[in-house]
């Protein structure tokens, strides 16, 4: 697997992302600076979390117009799996690769804690290895994770089975109480039309080792790996 992690000024989850990919796939991904114009020959791209450009203008807005994004958009268009986590998700919506927008949390506060997620579809390069029935535990750490999409877009996401993760309780029930940030329909992660781009606010890369709180994030990287390197 030839993975690349894009680093923007203000990214701060890039090391964790590289470490997670290396631990699950056995190969260290390439780090690509936002000013570069090519990702090189890659088969998996990850946009990490952080505060690119200090969240100026809107979260992810400036990063989405970085030089490297032209190649991210081109490779995504060619079918390369692209994962955006947290600020990476914000960048993907700002770049127009995913619908909707991420707004200030409904409760206005920065939220940093574990959440439960329901895996809503296994039909994607990122979710095939998850047990659908079991809720998974991941970490969130964001101020602007309140996913917004108009009614028509939301319905389309549902109809096309493009909601990858929803916030739920520990029993897997999708309830208003389990929604940490006000996201429409408890949406925590979505896929693009061709299902090769996933944006999500929770951090799978932080749940790779038991010593660091859990291993529920491994399945995401294992899914990508099993697709690219079938056993």
């Amino acid at each position: 697997m030839k993975a690349a992690v894009v680093i923007f000024p203000g990214s701060n989850c890039d090391r964790d992302m590289m470490d997670a990919i290396a631990k699950v796939t056995g190969k260290l991904p390439r780090a690509v600076w936002h000013r570069d114009t090519s990702l090189g020959d890659v088969d998996f791209i990850a946009l990490p979390g952080g505060f690119s450009y200090g969240d100026y203008l809107r979260c992810g807005a400036i990063a989405a117009r970085s030089p490297i994004m032209a190649d991210v958009i081109a490779k995504a268009g060619a079918g390369v799996p692209v994962l955006g986590v947290c600020n990476g998700f914000q960048i993907l919506t700002e770049a127009g690769l995913l619908p909707g927008a991420l707004m200030r949390n409904a409760g206005l506060t920065f939220i940093c804690r574990d959440v439960w997620l329901k895996v809503e579809t296994r039909r994607s390069p990122f979710t095939g290895c998850f047990e659908r029935a079991q809720p998974v535990r991941m970490h969130i750490a964001h101020h602007d994770g309140n996913y917004f999409a108009d009614e028509q877009t939301r319905r389309r996401l549902e109809d096309e089975d493009r909601i990858a993760f929803r916030y739920c309780d520990d029993k897997g029930r999708v309830t208003p109480e389990a929604n940490p940030n006000g996201s429409v329909a408890n949406i925590a992660g979505i896929l693009n039309e061709t299902r090769n781009i996933l944006g999500m606010m929770p951090h799978p890369e932080r749940m790779i080792e038991p010593e660091l709180g859990g291993t529920d994030g491994r399945a995401l990287f294992e899914s990508v790996l099993s697709l690219l390197q079938p056993a």
Binding site: L57, R58, A61, R65, T93, E94, A101, M103, A149, D150
Partner: peptide
């Protein structure tokens, strides 16, 4: 259109 506003919201 290209940067200053996000016309989704």
């Amino acid at each position: 259109k290209k940067l200053l506003a996000n016309t989704v919201i």
